[in-house]
Design a protein around this nucleic acid. Structure first.
Length: 561
RNA sequence: UGGGGUGUCGCCAAGCGGUAAGGCAUCAGACUUUGACUCUGACAUUCGUAGGUUCAAAUCCUGCCACCCCAGCCA
């Protein structure tokens, strides 16, 4: 790749691009910009990871550079092939494509050779201290550490011992290789960090071929340099590791020196984030799985019906800074709605039906036209059947309407979406006092699209039972949120986080229009009920199950006194 | 307590010595075949705090305060 020209510096839209531009202007970049997406295959991707993905793939894209997907698979204890596969699916779903797939294990031979080089230069030594002793010798935040008694072994002895570690001659934990830096450093990471440990484990990719594994702190900078990475973008929690990262880079003897830049992680208020926490919920059976729609994993969001572009838009809008970013759920929801508003088919559905009788309607039923995509001028239209007896939403009628209520009550006029304007004339009650049936009269001159102008304040959706299909609709509490104090919801306590496990509402008596071609890939807006997606796991042809993606914004709010 | 990082509207977030962008949320109004969408308007005399430098500071200096991260042979 040709050297990036100073003229090719793009206008920076965040501090990371700013730093990259500085490097280009300073002539530090030879070749193009290269980043990497380095997940550890120890769990599923969640929305917090999207920021890192956008930053790594997106930045490379912007500079015409490349980004590799590199699994940080240096700890087989936590890793599984299941996660390796899921990760790739999720990245592709988001719409990003890596240049190459790499593994940290690809570089084990090189890592090993550089470790040997460091030993030869007297910059690393084999330490016989037990893990507990290493910890004790390290000192505390305020007190400096003590040198290991094995710190000054001869190069020959170190070489021999490390070779034997590699050959599997010692017990796990009995010895490790440490970088010789400074036991008195105020930065804990610089107090002779462990760079190689003995592990006799079956690695999901390389089996038992290695008995010694490099630690993240050693392999990551090396792999970056080896691969040609120019900018290694990572989380703020690695800020303290940067001096060590640089130490490894500078002592590696490698030509390419990549630079680590940190950004803050992205969180959403009142959701459970962090692989560890999500994993615990899954393992303890508190949620249905990694794709439980209440979760914020990409799998869950997708199952719920969220479109990937919404996630990208959201992450970009949230920006990339170094402050702790905790966004409100309403912000995420805005971007979900924004995409869906353009892409979701409109379908009429009644979640909690009551009967509406048009008393002066004599026809057998008549066809009306409904727009599938009203946001799009060239929308397709579908036919639906209006009739004398209809189903409407229970909440669209009130016996005693609160102030500013614009829907049905005796004497009021509303438009039935796509059909006629009707005036409510009366209602019947059940013995328990609930509404059984509502009566109305229609005005035959007011058919939608006829051009006759009628001013009504409310439009309600409806269904003709003969042309409707019963279905199941599930709505979810806001993702998986902390319960508010005083809530009666069932709670499950995990560590310090309180989870609301009672946030699923299943409604089996809902109806949707028949004759609509429902597919998994489509999203639907159920008029005033919000956006829904056909559940891609639970649905069967004879039982439509819709998951709520997100509700509509705003709604009627009774006056609070 | 040592080191590192961060503090700008309810929530994100620009700004980098020249007199506070933008988005979400909220409120008011218009429009409407979804109380959606769209549109229009309102919304920080003030940038954690106290001083200092300067004609001029959110931006520079000093001292405080708050929060986050680090003592894995995890990443």
């Amino acid at each position: 790749m040709a050297d990036i020209k100073k003229a090719e510096v793009i206008e920076a839209t965040n501090f990371i691009e700013n730093e990259i531009n500085k490097d280009i202007l300073a002539g530090k970049i030879h070749g193009g910009i290269q980043t990497r997406h380095p997940p550890e295959p120890s769990g599923y991707l969640h929305i917090g990871h999207v920021r890192n993905i956008v930053l790594n793939y997106g930045t490379a894209l912007k500079y015409g550079g490349i980004c590799n997907l590199r699994y940080d698979d240096t700890n087989p204890l936590k890793e599984k092939q299941e996660f390796v596969d899921a990760l790739q699916e999720d990245v592709l779903w988001l719409g990003y494509k890596w240049n190459e797939i790499k593994y940290a294990t690809d570089y084990f031979q090189e890592n090993y050779e550089i470790a040997v080089k460091l030993i030869k230069e007297g910059k690393a030594y084999v330490c016989d201290l037990s893990p507990e002793e290493v910890s004790q010798y390290r000192g505390t935040l305020t007190e400096p550490g003590k040198n290991s008694p094995y710190r000054d072994r001869s190069v020959e002895e170190n070489l021999d011992l490390f070779e034997r570690m590699k050959n599997g001659e010692f017990e796990q934990g009995s010895r490790c290789l440490r970088a010789k830096i400074d036991m008195a450093s105020p930065n804990m990471n610089m107090r002779d960090p462990v760079i190689y440990r003995i592990q006799y484990l079956d690695h999901q990719r390389i089996g038992r071929s290695w008995n010694v594994y490099p630690t993240y702190d050693f392999s990551h900078p090396l792999d970056d340099c080896l691969e040609g990475v120019t900018h290694s973008i990572c989380g703020l929690e690695f800020e303290d590791h940067r001096p060590l990262y640089n130490w490894v880079v500078e002592n590696s003897g490698l030509e390419n020196h990549s630079r680590q830049i940190e950004y803050s992680n992205l969180m959403i208020r009142n959701t459970v984030s962090g692989k560890r926490n999500i994993k615990k919920l899954v393992e303890e059976g508190i949620v249905w799985g990694w794709d439980d729609p209440r979760l914020i994993t990409l799998k869950a969001l997708r199952r719920r019906g969220v479109l990937p572009e919404s996630l990208i838009d959201f992450v970009v809008a949230a920006g990339f800074a170094k402050t702790t970013t905790i966004c409100e759920q309403s912000m995420l929801e805005y971007f979900i709605r924004n995409t869906l508003n353009q892409k979701a088919k409109r379908v009429m559905a009644v979640l909690d039906p009551i009967k509406l009788v048009i008393t002066n309607y004599e026809g057998e039923g008549e066809e009306i036209l409904l727009e599938d995509y009203p946001q799009n001028e060239e929308t397709t239209k579908r036919k639906y059947v209006f009739g004398k007896e209809l189903l409407i939403e229970r909440s669209d009628f009130e016996v005693t309407p609160p102030p500013k209520y614009h829907r049905l009550y005796v004497g009021n006029t509303v438009r039935l979406k796509g059909a006629y304007v009707v005036k409510c004339t009366g209602y019947d009650l059940n013995e328990d006092g609930s509404v059984k049936c509502v009566y109305a009269e229609y005005d035959k001159n007011t058919k939608s699209g006829s051009g006759v102008e009628v001013k009504v304040k409310g439009t309600i959706h409806w269904l003709n039972e003969k042309y409707a299909t019963k279905c199941e609709v599930r709505t979810f509490g806001n993702l998986l949120a902390d319960s508010e104090a005083g809530s009666t919801n069932e709670r499950a306590e995990l560590g310090e986080v309180v989870y609301n496990t009672n946030s699923v509402d299943i409604n089996k008596n809902a109806y949707v229009e028949s004759d609509v071609d429902f597919t998994m890939e489509d999203r639907y807006q159920f008029m005033r009920n919000g956006y829904y997606a056909l559940d891609c796991v639970d649905s069967k042809p004879d039982a439509l199950v819709f998951n709520q993606v997100v509700g509509l914004k705003g709604s009627y709010k009774p006056e609070v006194k």
